[in-house]
């Protein structure tokens, strides 16, 4: 297969401009999907995959080195762990407030169950995004 971008040449200007201008809209949509996960189709997993796909598109447009330059592996690992920590941590907070694990009832918000689900979705979204990106990055580096 022919390489893209060709050896020693910058990426094509049309592909770069189109992909770079699409990326913010995809990311906004991903955030929308994560945040509205409890009331409409979507959720943490789908939103995280959409966010990861935006970075994959950026990497495809800019060439192989872009992902390595912009997103260090340590940051991906940290994000993947932070999402799990957010998920499990909310469960522990619920335990500390006297309820069951992940029972959002006693959280100090006006609508505790909605807020609890939102935090869970954000945690799942962060972890899925980081895991997908690190799979993609490892496959590129292999």
């Amino acid at each position: 297969m022919t390489r893209y971008p060709p050896e020693g040449q910058p990426p094509d200007i049309i592909i770069r401009v189109v992909c770079r201008s699409l990326v913010p809209f995809i990311q906004l949509f991903g955030l929308y999907v994560v945040v509205h996960g409890h009331s409409s189709p979507g959720g943490g997993f789908q939103g995280g995959v959409t966010l990861a796909a935006s970075f994959v598109l950026l990497a495809l447009a800019e060439g192989r080195g872009a992902l390595r330059r912009h997103i260090p592996l340590g940051a991906l690992n940290a994000f993947a762990s932070a999402g799990v920590l957010l998920y499990a941590g909310l469960g522990v907070v619920c335990l500390a407030l006297g309820a069951n694990y992940l029972d959002y009832g006693p959280l100090p918000f006006a609508e505790p169950r909605s807020v609890g689900m939102l935090v869970i979705e954000i945690g799942v979204g962060i972890t899925v995004m980081a895991a997908m990106l690190s799979i993609f990055r490892d496959m590129l580096e292999f």
Binding site: V33, P41, G42, G43, V49, T50, A52, V56, M132, F136
Partner: peptide, 19 residues
Amino acid sequence: AVDVAFTEAAVGAGVTTVL
């Protein structure tokens, strides 16, 4: 099954194709 369809579109057509 809109939720499943969404996952299929994001994962099936998007990410696995790239991989």
